[in-house]
Design a protein around this nucleic acid. Structure first.
Lengths: 339, 339
DNA sequence: CTGAAAGCGCTTACAG
DNA sequence: CTGAAAGCGCTTACAG
């Protein structure tokens, strides 16, 4: 029986040595029964398990991680907690990480995010085994250079000239589909309500919008393109206001996010314009409120849960030493009432 | 210059000994300039800083935390990522933790959450310095017993016979205010759309509803009380359906969550009932969509950001050794169009 | 001001 | 099957 140095370590959680002492074995043995890593004699095991129970012992994750070289924690970078779209993706991520025994560290990756963020700083330093980023491309880029050796996976966003794999739908094609739908319904003056093009997806949806129009021989009218200052409902209202002021307003609006679409509809309604009779409005994302809102939103549905789940799987696979290739999932056009 | 044992540690991040070697000092000195904990000679400091820069060194947070006895990580338990109400609270939490150099580990605390969750399991074991819980009281209770020595703070929920401080509005009083408002508008048949009473707040709002009715000498009609099977929009629709089937339906509905209220309105609309003309609907929370929805929601606003921020402050104060007393913040009745 | 050494709580070859 | 010991990468008395 070994001699313990610090016997009365206050009320603090029992350590492995306390368990060893209690069971009359070495800490190595305790470790073995805890991890099932090596055969242990039946009654030795029983004694250890009894000691664990008696002391309410739980291995200190910090020490364990330090030795194992992994924390089983994944960092998730989201641009905005409040956007339901991101929340759904996180749910997808969570579903697979939970199954695999990983925890999630979530940080809001705003523009201001940088090395001065002590929180993130601590994470970079081996607190997480890898990161899943939904952050704006513009925010992501500089971060990548700072923390080169952590495995990254981008979700919805991506970084072309890098080895960061990504999981996403084909934003450009989805936008083409949306605009084509509007064209098919006879619209010729179609406005684009875009989001900050710090988001790669915003840029790509914008490209899809222009492509679809050009393909239909409709000239791009710069005034019909409005960039919202955020993705909250109010930002959609504001941006739509500008459209309202035009002498020849659009007959249809393609918004790159449902939140923006809903904000726009609100703005239109306020001045007595009916949707879709006077203006058709298409959204993007198919967030939960899209179907209960009135008029219910015609929108592009992203397989959000799957997006998150796939990103998590990709990262886990990579952590397990596997190769990681990017993935493109399918989108779908959901026709409801707003367009 | 000391001899390094493991020289070619692959590409892995530089360790403190690598920095020490590079700068020609001991690791103790490196630690001191890193932490500014003790005076260091100016040019020694310069040499160390140069080495840190050259090697791109960042302290290993795991080892550091193990020594310091703190991780500067806080665990946030949310019942549902998808509910905008919780998202806003998390934003409040994040604003203060970020300022204080703390990171957030977020886990979804569903009913199924238990010791089999490897993710949470690792957290309990000293991965987080404390926890802020928005979890259902019913889920929270058993967890508390498992991890007794972590400092907890409950937000919106609470645990009466424990030393867990909480930050919340007065849910019961808020419900009384809501129902009284409805009564003042002449309603007599007021339904309650409640949420799972695993949530303490649901139970309290329910109590407030009954109190207000009784105070007005209106008998409680059990059929007018419906418990939704969740807090998503669809759950509100479902629960409202039952109300619709009544021979003498209510003239007003008080929903304990905006999501539920919106779902109910949708259900009413589907069968041609107008809100608020045929049925008035009141919500609770004032989530972002409440004001853009049509009809805009009359609701009880909770100071969500403040709630989250206060919970974080309370926890931080406690971690700093301070005392922790519970806090009740003010709610507000927002009159818009739905009631 | 600086270094050698102990120690945080674990895991894992290495012997036996 | 089991233990003594080294080591993960740090921080911090203890000497000097």
């Amino acid at each position: 029986m070994s001699v313990k140095t610090n016997k009365a370590k206050a009320s603090a959680t029992a350590s492995i040595s306390a368990v060893a002492e209690h069971a009359g074995v070495s800490i190595a043995t305790v470790s073995r029964v805890l991890n099932g890593t090596k055969a242990v004699n039946a009654d030795t095991r029983a004694r250890v398990e009894a000691a664990v129970g008696a002391l309410g012992y739980r291995a200190n994750a910090l020490a364990r991680s330090l030795m194992r070289g992994e924390t089983r924690l994944l960092l998730v970078l989201v641009p905005d907690f409040a956007n339901p779209y991101f929340a759904e993706i996180v749910k997808g991520v969570e579903s697979v990480t939970r199954e695999n025994g990983y925890g999630l560290v979530i940080a809001e990756a705003s523009q201001t995010l940088s090395r001065d963020s002590a929180a993130l700083d601590s994470l970079y330093n081996r607190m997480a085994d890898g990161v899943i980023s939904l952050a704006r491309f513009a925010d992501l880029k500089p971060l990548l250079q700072e923390i080169p050796d952590l495995p990254w996976v981008a979700c919805s966003e991506f970084v072309d000239d890098s080895d960061v794999p990504s999981v996403s739908i084909d934003h450009r094609q989805a936008a083409i589909d949306a605009v084509q739908y509007l064209l098919n319904r006879g619209h010729q003056r179609i406005a684009l309500l875009s989001a900050s093009e710090d988001y790669r997806w915003a840029r790509q949806r914008h490209a899809g919008y222009e492509f679809a129009l050009r393909r239909a021989n409709i000239p791009i009218e710069p005034q019909l393109v409005r960039v919202a200052r955020g993705t909250d409902y109010v930002h959609g209202m504001d941006a739509a206001g500008a459209l309202l002021a035009m002498e020849q307003p659009p007959t249809a609006v393609f918004a790159v996010a449902d939140t923006l679409a809903i904000g726009a509809i609100k703005a239109f309604r306020r001045v007595g314009r009916r949707v879709p009779e006077d203006v058709a409005v298409m959204g993007f994302d198919d967030i939960p409120v899209a179907q209960v809102f009135e008029p219910a939103l015609t929108t592009i549905a992203q397989p959000v849960r799957e997006l998150g789940a796939a990103a998590a799987q990709l990262l886990l696979k990579r952590l397990a030493g596997g190769a990681s290739e990017s993935l493109t999932l399918d989108h779908a056009l959901i026709v409801r009432a707003s367009a």
